[in-house]
């Protein structure tokens, strides 16, 4: 785990989390952060799919071919459409996770944080 108490296994050079058998400690003892992040990423995934379906609808409508469930399912985005969607998706992700980005940006001007990070080992 990130409080990496364990040292590399001297003879084999292997490092394992203490709870290595489990999925990840983020989902057990750090359930607050881990479970929330798991749900948020799952949700952004659902939004991305929804947006892709909407975009497919709009493109089918614009092409005049009409759209129904089967046509939407059969639609495969060509590379320029994929690139456009990727761009939109990246922007959505940046908005959703803005709080983390900004917090990291603020660290450099935070002397208290620096002090904690530079504490000498007891």
């Amino acid at each position: 785990m990130s409080e990496s108490k364990q040292l590399p296994d001297g003879t084999e050079g292997l490092i394992f989390r203490e709870d290595a058998q489990h999925r990840s400690e983020f989902f057990s003892e750090r359930a607050d952060v881990g479970r929330l992040l798991e749900m948020v990423t799952a949700l952004t995934g659902e939004i991305a799919i929804l947006r892709a379906r909407l975009d497919t609808h709009e493109r089918l409508a614009a092409s005049g071919s009409g759209f129904d469930h089967a046509r939407v399912e059969a639609y495969r985005a060509p590379s320029d459409v994929l690139a456009y969607r990727m761009q939109q998706d990246q922007e959505m992700i940046a908005r959703v996770f803005r709080a983390v980005t900004e917090e990291i940006d603020r660290l450099a001007s935070d002397a208290d944080v620096r002090k904690v990070l530079m504490e000498k080992k007891a």
Binding site: E3, S4, S24, F26, V33, L37, F97, L117
Partner: peptide, 23 residues
């Protein structure tokens, strides 16, 4: 690294990286 893990932003980055891989 152990001290960084005290920062919420760092734990969030870690958990997000794991979540993306698991997703």
């Amino acid at each position: 690294e152990r001290r960084l893990a005290k920062l919420g932003a760092y734990r969030t980055w870690q958990a997000l990286t794991v979540a993306a891989q698991e997703e």
